[in-house]
Amino acid sequence: MELFQYPYMQRALIAALVIGLAAPALGIYLVQRRLALIGDGIGHVALTGVGAGLLLNRSPVLVAVIVATLGAIAIELVRSRGRTSGDLALALLFYGGIAGGVMLVGLSHSPSANLNAYLFGSLTTISPTDLTTIVVLGVVILVAMLVLRPALFAVSHDEEYARVSGLPVRTLNMLIAITTAVTVTIAMRAVGVLLISALMVVPVASAQQVTRGFRSTMTAAMALGLFAAGSGVWVAANADTAPGASVVLMAIASFLVIALAAAGWRVLRRRRVPAAAPAAPEPHEVLIG
């Protein structure tokens, strides 16, 4: 525990906890609209921003936010047009993003460890300024996702119905796209661009094994994200492992535990309720006056 007496470790822990809370709060909407891997794609694009930032001697995180946001807007436009070539357009964007990033980082002559820090996270690189950025943007994302939950739920659940309800569907979709880009980039330092998507998706996947509603899934996913981030950073600090990898492995471990427990619970309940009792048939008294 004494490691957390160092300010840089405290910063790392706070950053990870904020991200652990915000990433699943956004991720649940991505999972709901079957875009579970979009965060990964935007991470690739963000890498080009990192490269450009290093090359231009500007803040890599700031440039990455801009580039990733532009990428996310492009992806959303392709998605909403529903073009058949959308799949290929996304592939071009993703691979172009990572290739551009690797090339620009190379041109900038910064040490290769620098690239690794962005790919997989690096606890020691979070400066006090970085932490402020992460906390402020993280809280903004969290508040937006919670306050707009009914509207974002409606849009992600049934886009046509949302349109007929007069909701600003395009704006809400764009909000999700931009929020994804911002989440990916602020999480870069703590978890890394290649693994952040897991923190958006895995806690949601774990939570929905045992929940019945959207709200309860969101709450449980945020709790699991918080746990994975906190325990992951603790493991990374003590075992000197890459923080991104540790956080993601903790998230996946909790998924396995919950999935097994849920399966076991179902088997137990089936045993307790004798198989002879069939499920109640559909009631007939549904006639209403």
Binding site: I28, V31, Q32, F153, A162, S165, Q208, F214, T217
Partner: peptide, 19 residues
């Protein structure tokens, strides 16, 4: 199907109030 994220009947019906 909503990508497999569960939603209760009440949550779906509550969307009808947004307009």
């Amino acid at each position: 199907a909503g990508g497999g994220v569960p939603a209760t009947v009440r949550e779906v019906v509550a969307s009808g109030r947004l307009a």
